[in-house]
Amino acid sequence: MNPSHTVRKARPTDLPMVYKGELNYIQTIEPEHEQRWKDAMHSHLRQWTGALERMSVVEQDGVPVGYCFWEIIDDAACLASIHVVPELRQRGLGRLLLDHYMNDARTQGFAKLTLSVFRGNPAQFLYESAGFQCVRKGEEYVDYVYPDVTASTED
């Protein structure tokens, strides 16, 4: 039997899963930043609770297995985080969450969609395959923007 996947709005009771997912990310992708990340926990809690209305959770057969959330930065909807539990990666759940972020942001009136990713993070392939284009390569992070399909190509 194939598992059933649904995406729903996050609830405050999902925040422990977000903490575990973000900690897993730091320990796996950016271990050199773990202590600084832990020292900033109050800031993370403010970020997560502030973005709760823009946070989505993917469930498999009713069990939360991933999440994403985005923030508003200037005039853009910026993907802040996307996470799928390690044992369920490479099964399309990250793409499901990414598409949900993009649709949610557009529904809320945002034409500009952005994200930044740590260099070497395997998620870069996901973002590029979805159509995000690199606009800046920094020392540690790569910045992406989704082409604005509402922009006119006429001069």
Rank of each mutant, 00 (worst) to 15 (best):
Y146I: 03
A40R: 15
A111N: 12
G21N: 02
A76H: 08
D39H: 10
I29S: 05
D14Q: 08
K9A: 12
P16I: 04
A151T: 04
M1G: 14
T107A: 13
R11G: 06
W37C: 09
R119E: 10
Y101I: 01
L113T: 05
A77C: 08
N24L: 07
L15F: 06
K38V: 10
E71I: 15
V18H: 01
V18A: 11
R11Q: 12
V117H: 01
E32Q: 15
C78A: 09
V84R: 00
F125C: 11
I73H: 10
L98T: 02
G62N: 08
C134V: 15
A123L: 11
T49W: 12
E30S: 15
V149R: 09
D99K: 12
L15P: 03
T13A: 14
A40G: 10
V57N: 02
K20M: 15
C78I: 00
Y67M: 10
V65C: 14
V117W: 02
C68P: 00
R136D: 10
Q124I: 13
V18F: 13
Q133T: 11
Q35G: 09
G131P: 08
E34Y: 14
L79R: 03
L96G: 01
Q133E: 14
I82T: 06
M17I: 08
A80D: 08
G109D: 10
D74K: 13
A130E: 15
C134I: 15
R136W: 06
K112P: 01
A123Y: 07
V117A: 09
E22R: 14
D155L: 12
H44C: 02
V85E: 13
T153S: 13
S129T: 14
G66L: 08
L115S: 07
L115R: 06
E32M: 11
I29N: 03
L88F: 07
G109W: 01
G92R: 01
T13F: 01
Q108W: 03
P31L: 09
R136A: 10
G131I: 03
K112S: 13
Y19S: 05
M17Q: 10
A40S: 15
Y146D: 03
V63P: 01
Q60T: 13
A76L: 05
Q47I: 14
S43L: 12
P31I: 10
Q27N: 14
E71G: 08
L96E: 07
